[in-house]
Nucleic acid binder design. Sequence first.
DNA 1: ATGGTTGGTAGCCAA
Length: 266
Amino acid sequence: MRLCTWNINSVRLRLPLLLRLLDEHAPDVVCLQETKTVDDTFPLRELAERGYRFAHIHGMKSYNGVAILSRLELGAREVRHWCGREDCRHIATTLPVGPGIELHNLYIPAGGDVPDPAVNEKFAHKLQFLDEMIRWWPEQRSPDRPMILVGDLNIAPLETDVWSHRQLLDVVSHTPVEVEKLTQVQRTLGWVDAVRRFVPETEKLYTWWSYRSADWAASDRGRRLDHVWVTPPLAPALAGTTVLREARGWEPKPSDHVPVLVDFRF
DNA sequence: ATGGTTGGTAGCCAA
């Protein structure tokens, strides 16, 4: 099974690039974030025509929005709300492969610009979201359950997940407080970072490059914000990963995030 | 130190 996660930054604007991803990389399951559309205007028909007949979507006007598209039959759609808001950041389902897998697709709040929850409500929201997950996973799920967690987590936890650890220590996405909380989430169930199973922690690796750069590839000031985690029972099934760096240059209008692919063998 | 771009939507807000 090939799984993909991608912050597509508007599924309607970038439908041609999504179809290109499907044609060129043939994922069985695709998890999207920032679809930015209500469910009525999600381009389901075009995806079904390409063989992605199963879809669970959870979107709203203008902001956020998550979706799971699949060639494999999906189980029931589950939607979760965090921080008392209904802002379309979490959708889950089950996959009929291997031992039967629960799949969670998440879009964690970006957190605004100022890394101080006292003056920046958006950063406070991000930290609260992480705090709720630190409680929720061990209360509601066992580490024995085969699960995959993917998404735009909006945090680059390792020093090699950013272009300059020193210069990003006070930049939202790499501050110690949020990195520590994400690490705590990871510890709740012993989540395994699938991509770092194949790319050593000494190696720089990014999945996002800002639009505010004259030449993203030349300056290469990226961050690894998009992640695929699995619970311990699935770790032996991990067969390989690809961060599709080339997609940052896809014409005519690339997303600022690139797809992350993970292959499983059962 | 600062500003830089993009998307959705029609105001700026969010990233």
